[in-house]
Nucleic acid binder design. Structure first.
Lengths: 343, 343
DNA sequence: TTACTTTATGCAACCGATTGCAAAAAAATT
DNA sequence: AATTTTTTTGCAATCGGTTGCATAAAGTAA
């Protein structure tokens, strides 16, 4: 245990002394307080620069009880989508003088709870969360609400009076996609869904079902398959489908990973897409453009979602608690039609 | 600007008062200092629990001048590999009582420099870095070295006497892959490389070249193509290859994204893999298993790399500066042979 | 010149945990 | 019982900005 930093740090007191003014003036000058004369500010900045001063966040945090830090909890960091979300958040946050602390729940509620504790102990000013696959409630965020620490959910959200949600219209997107499949001639459309406790999957399922209904097609219970949407699940589903006596003529997977794996396994079993069966996914993952045939899917931009989430949070932090904030912000999505659904 | 936290925070002083002991004892008790009697510790912990005490990091940081925070700068967070790396780092760090601050350079030196400044101002105790594509030097990390803040590079590294490197043997992996291609009958093997200033790409290139040389094959300058290894670059390269009078019989791309895109474009131009040409990549990205034919590639586990990097850094932080640390740690890799190179 | 604003700066008490050193309390030894 | 040793605990200064309030300086009006 040695002290890592040898040289003594320069403080505002050192600057004050060098300029024969008070530390208070230096403190105000450094953050551009209007009560300080411009000439004085200039001198302070110059001196700070000259002495190699660096601001001490902890002294400020200790005093102000704010950390200018935003916590981010996401299921995984391994998709282009998430990478974009984070990039968008970073951009907005940094411009507003906030830092990000990022952690992944790896899709388990257990880790998500641990992450929440960590964030709490790090005293983040606010929290941006996309829920894990297995999360069943949000009690682990209760301590944040108790302390009035703003909490915003994005993408995988949870409806709660205190927590704004940033989402896309999953229902509408799924509705559009399903309607399109019907329009392509499909009648027996199966849906592979994720955990229906997660809004994204329940909404997609509902959109799918409503589209069927509106087209006069009677939904059958065994058209719905719920699993973890992993590649393995996709393969399993394909095998299941091949074993059916009455096979579907289209499959709509709630994510691309699963849809692609399923489509490939179907192919290995002699089912050709799109000739014998249409397949569509959701997310516009890079693999959708690699797989043969290219996968029809729904695209939505992560960067925008990240920006909006961060901006909403920062507004909350700056304006104080007594302001009007939208309960839900819905972002754009778009249907991307590719070969996997073209007859 | 309202204070977000309404209720007064509980401090060690409150606990001390409640138990009629001193704050110093509480402070020591809470961190299990051996000089405190077990009975006293028990009372302290119980009281802390009862009062809803939470530790104030900033007061400690201010005092100890350590933050128990590790900075991580990576090019992007969007690969399974990076996600695993981060997960590995998180695991080791959290167990050792450290937190991670993560940021992405988005492959540009400019952003990487900004990230470095941020990390510096946040006073991370140490830094884990994988360099951006366009980074040409490491002057932006000089301030860390000046202050003796440990800096460790992983994967995309930079050799510097003060900075340990965590890598795989890129030379050997590329050598093995190339040798395998030769063994499959390939004689005119092209290599698509990334920026040769990055160790990973220069080493892979060198391994490729040495394998050719050892097999008695004369390397030709125009077998080397350097680009950004993006999908677009892969397509461009494929077109370039199709226009050649003497086409290669195998292509070794320095990452999977580029190799896959190239392979697909070749196919669109009537070149069939593996019949007409063998193709291999590097990284074992998910798309390698999705593309048809499946891509031969090199796998290495990110989780392990993240763990090792974090552990190495934490050792440095704990043991102080006067210890022996390996300059370079080399991790395992494995060749994954799939259909894209099977005749 | 005096009185009143407006603008700039300084004082000093925080924020909450840490730790070297001294002293008190308890245990062991003579 | 007195003394020495060991174990526990407390004192008080410290880390470095922040900010309400007071005061000084400069500017304007009367």
């Amino acid at each position: 245990m040695s002290t890592p930093n040898e040289k003594k740090e320069v403080t505002i007191y050192d600057i004050a002394e060098a300029l024969h003014i008070s530390a208070a003036t230096v403190s105000r000058g450094l953050k551009n307080h209007p009560a300080i004369k411009q000439a004085t500010k200039d001198k302070i900045f110059a001196q700070a620069e000259r002495m190699g001063y660096r601001f001490n966040t902890f002294a400020r945090n200790l005093r102000t009880k704010r950390t200018y830090t935003i916590g981010v909890i996401v299921p995984r960091l391994n998709s282009m989508f998430m990478s974009d979300v984070i990039a968008g958040m970073e951009k907005v946050s940094n411009e507003a003088g906030y830092e990000l602390i990022i952690s992944q729940s790896l899709e388990t509620m257990e880790k998500e709870m641990k992450n929440a504790v960590t964030m709490f102990n790090n005293r983040v000013d606010g929290l941006l969360v996309s829920l894990a696959y297995t999360t069943t409630g949000i009690d682990h965020f209760k301590r944040f609400m108790d302390k009035n620490i703003p909490l915003i959910f994005f993408d995988r959200v949870f409806e709660h009076p205190n927590c704004p949600n940033i989402v896309i219209n999953n229902h509408k997107a799924a509705y559009e996609l399903t309607s399109y499949l019907i329009q392509q001639g499909a009648r027996r459309i199966m849906h592979i869904a994720g955990n229906l406790n997660r809004n994204v999957y329940s909404q997609r399922f509902k959109g799918y079902k409503d589209a069927l209904s509106d087209a006069g097609i009677q939904f059958k219970e065994d058209w719905l398959i719920v699993n973890n949407l992993s590649a393995e699940d996709g393969i399993r589903t394909a095998k299941h489908i091949c074993a059916l006596t009455e096979r579907p003529d289209a499959i709509f997977g709630a994510n691309d990973t699963c849809a692609v794996a399923c489509m490939q396994e179907l192919r290995r079993n002699g089912v050709y897409v799109p000739k014998d069966m249409l397949v569509a996914g959701f997310n516009n993952d890079p693999i959708a453009t690699v797989v043969e045939p290219n996968l029809t899917t729904v695209n939505y931009r992560g960067h925008e979602m990240g920006e909006v989430a961060a901006r909403t949070l920062i507004n909350l932090l700056n304006e104080g608690s007594e302001q009007q904030t939208a309960a839900t912000i819905v972002l754009r999505h778009e249907l991307i039609i590719r070969d996997s659904t073209r007859r």
